[in-house]
Design a protein around this nucleic acid. Sequence first.
DNA 1: CCTATCTATGCACCAAGTTGCATATGAACT
DNA 2: AGTTCATATGCAACTTGGTGCATAGATAGG
Lengths: 183, 183
Amino acid sequence: MSLKHLILALVAQKPSTGYEITHEFDAVSSFFWRATHQQIYRELAALAEDGLLRFKAVEQKSKPDKKVYSITAKGRKAFAAWFAEAGSPPRQTDPLMIKFFSGELGGIDELRNQLRLARAAHEARLKRLEAVEAEHYGEPVAEMPRWKQCIYLTLQLGLARERVWLEWADMSDRVLAKGARRS
Amino acid sequence: MSLKHLILALVAQKPSTGYEITHEFDAVSSFFWRATHQQIYRELAALAEDGLLRFKAVEQKSKPDKKVYSITAKGRKAFAAWFAEAGSPPRQTDPLMIKFFSGELGGIDELRNQLRLARAAHEARLKRLEAVEAEHYGEPVAEMPRWKQCIYLTLQLGLARERVWLEWADMSDRVLAKGARRS
DNA sequence: CCTATCTATGCACCAAGTTGCATATGAACT
DNA sequence: AGTTCATATGCAACTTGGTGCATAGATAGG
């Protein structure tokens, strides 16, 4: 289960609160993950219960109290063990593919409409990723520190995926449009 | 929930048993979906309970009895309604990206090892998809019937994704290797 | 006053996915 | 006989993701 390990990694980099992690996810989720605050708090509690994290309660003025989590040695070990495991193939599912699979049943015109809607969403996502790249990754990769290179590479995969999706979408629309003219 | 709709689509194309659907998934999952027989039977029962499918029990000789499901008018309506809905962005998560994100913590050598393992899996998947293409989609797309074009397009996206992933993997390995030589 | 936003945390329930286990018959192989 | 595979169906428990709702204090705006 990978949310657990992403949280361990974040806390290992810097002791953090659930609130901070939630906000980090709002940024990171642009690339490669998504989690709600409910999930994050739930997981933090479980990790602390299992001894992989510990927390210190901190009182604040004019703000609610907060819990700052840090990683334990047991947590570091668990992370390293997971890191060295061979992963299993990620689940890659997209309901739009069901719509394509059942395109004749649902209707080709509606399918093309669905494709247009999805295309707009993917374009918006590509623009967001490009904005992140422009804002944070202006220097040549060879000049980036190691940690930054690694993150940069996750961004590059996100960008490449969006671009290939858009190319595929345009090709699909051409294929479907040709048939439409014929009938 | 999309498994439900994929099942509706399959049953709409041809009345089917849970066993047949499970086997269809084993093939379809190569492209774009995955489901266990437990899920499928669970969903079939729910769809029948809700009146979207009906079934006829059939006795067989030297084989267990089977249930052949077919779609009801209510099921067709539900499918059409879903088909016309704007979908939400698919969840795209890959634990390998967490490993990249936390590459310095986990170790660059191990990260490159993980990349190699993943690369082998993606290459195998690409070969499988290419074999499907060669076996079933030899003719030009313009000559395919409409239903076949739609399925062909799902395959093309699968192929394009795998290819772009492999390009990204090779680029990433080069970036990580350069740093390795430097340190 | 009310509403909205921010900081900060959390309970509860449901949905969807995963895994283990099960029944039963028949055929083929060791 | 036991094992394996195929046909065919299904229960149960747990995990992981999603959604709704909640508490509490402070600040700003209508």
